[in-house]
Write a protein that binds this DNA or RNA. Sequence first.
DNA 1: CGCTGGCACTCGTCCTAATGGAGTGCTAAT
DNA 2: ATTAGCACTCCATTAGGACGAGTGCCAGCG
Lengths: 351, 351
Amino acid sequence: MGNTQVLNERSLQLLKMLVERYINDGQPVGSRALSKDSDLNLSPATIRNVMADLEDLGLVHSPHTSAGRVPTVSGYRLFVDTLLTVKPLESKDLTLLHQSLSVSEDTGDVIGVASRLLSELTQMAGVVTLPKRELVCLRHIEFLSLSHTRVLVIFVTNEQEVHNKIIHTSKVFSPAELQQAANYLNSIYSGRSLDAIRKAVLKDLQEDQERVSQGMLDAVKMAQLAFDHSNKKDDYVLTGETNLMGFSELSDMDRLKNLFEAFSQKQGVIHLLDQCMKADGVQIFIGEESGYRAFDHCSLVTSSYSVSDEVVGVLGVIGPTRMAYEKIIPYVDVTAKLLGAALNPKSTTPL
Amino acid sequence: MGNTQVLNERSLQLLKMLVERYINDGQPVGSRALSKDSDLNLSPATIRNVMADLEDLGLVHSPHTSAGRVPTVSGYRLFVDTLLTVKPLESKDLTLLHQSLSVSEDTGDVIGVASRLLSELTQMAGVVTLPKRELVCLRHIEFLSLSHTRVLVIFVTNEQEVHNKIIHTSKVFSPAELQQAANYLNSIYSGRSLDAIRKAVLKDLQEDQERVSQGMLDAVKMAQLAFDHSNKKDDYVLTGETNLMGFSELSDMDRLKNLFEAFSQKQGVIHLLDQCMKADGVQIFIGEESGYRAFDHCSLVTSSYSVSDEVVGVLGVIGPTRMAYEKIIPYVDVTAKLLGAALNPKSTTPL
DNA sequence: CGCTGGCACTCGTCCTAATGGAGTGCTAAT
DNA sequence: ATTAGCACTCCATTAGGACGAGTGCCAGCG
């Protein structure tokens, strides 16, 4: 019944052409079109037989009896995993990326720049997570009294990122005391990762309870509040959402609304992006693969980015399932590498 | 031809009923419906005559020959200006606002909270501009060397707002020098408004060129860079955009896209909101009145908010022209007042 | 056994025509 | 000034039919 070898070279090639053609013009593609496009010299009837096989395998699907075929999620998956021929970046795009993400360009918002580049180059939505705090180095910390026991903590990490948080202290501190505490913390914690600091703080509090002076103890207590774990407000920068409104597969208002609501809830998207942190290199979620209903008709092409060989964040592109993967992938790939390089604190003088 | 007094009491009342009814169910309202609703005991024919008059005056408009009437922009304008009966806030909403915007609740993001409240209560989009920097007081400034001539400036204004900016200095400073400069600037400028500081800096640079020490001169120069006028990146917090996607008048994808693009461009919206800073109290832009094509089918209900009797920002609600103005206005009004109060630095101890 | 041409069939799309209903404008009567 | 009545306009919905694209299947061919 059928072929001895169902997924032979020829069917794969035809699937590839089908996906490519569908990505191009968005119309279900019929047997006649494939027959003409391919240099296989096969009649439409033969193509139809192959299509029937592919449909049995769940790789393509017919919207209705007399329409052509459209790739299913599995079809796309097979396509991107084994059939795809990635196109190298155009040189003008490459130089644009290089210039915009060079270390010298310190707009103070490299993350935002990266996101904007992704969305502009791909004409879809670009997303970049902020670098994981845990893996980021403290450069400087500062306390500022606001009123009574409310103290504003300001700390700078890596290159140019400034974070601030309000904490409530158990006693009232004078500005001088705060200054002293900051000096102390800077002297012992500066240059270490937030994660390491958090552990060190706990250890210091337990072990050295009676050894250290009261002032130092206060300082460490404040550090504990400042670097509180609950504080990890993971966040991302998303740009070009409006680009998504042009795509016909998202022209359904309900879908679009769900998608945009997911964007502003953030947590769902963050969870999804977090999964991409584990692997490095480009990773792709197609349609329902993501598990989030709001993303059912979208694909997500991501790559983690690293600073000194340590994965610290994820960036990617969000668009309709029907996107030009072979172009998007290199964009994401290169942007991730350049962003990692731009964030690398090699050229930074220690504080 | 027609009435001696075209816009008499009765026509106004009918216009009011028409607008109210249209706002309710979104359908063009016909003469029969108005006849039944009103307690005027007028026949549909009479109503039709009145409607014809109102149409001549440009207050209502017929989508097509055999449809009812719909208010025009001028009609809405007349309605909100003179016919509207504002509904007082429901007490549960009032207490919600009070609790969320009370001074004690320092999430560090009062602006964001206000915006979220507006969008949730009205089920439309809420927008709040950040307080104008010019009118905001400096509490503390700090310099941090990043590398070579790149210096990170951190300054705190009013209550809890932290700003930061990277400047390029003409010479290389040691951390100790930076600390000294910050101390000096804090001692002379702390507590003054950014606007005042900017002027003082100019004066100091011109007049006291030779009098002051080199260190102080450097400090003032850095202050100039830090408070550079170009630095006024006016910004706003917008929430609940997705609420707008439910409205039928915005279900046109092109319109929606234009609107959302305007939201992310920001400058246009900011310019619009700036105009509302001049007047205090609630102000309304209806449809094309705003002058921005993207807002053609939207209305904007705004109010400026003030800290110690000085207008510092604007907040408001964005929704379709067909919105329940009588409910929205008090929401905006009260939120503006409470936000102003929450920002008031009365309970703050000087630094 | 794989490939192909032919044929009937299914659907979606587009156009047309017909119908019903809502609401108007106008006119003549009160 | 108001009203009832009437003709009229226009939208929305429905139904029908033609068209085209594409399929599935079958029988024949190398």
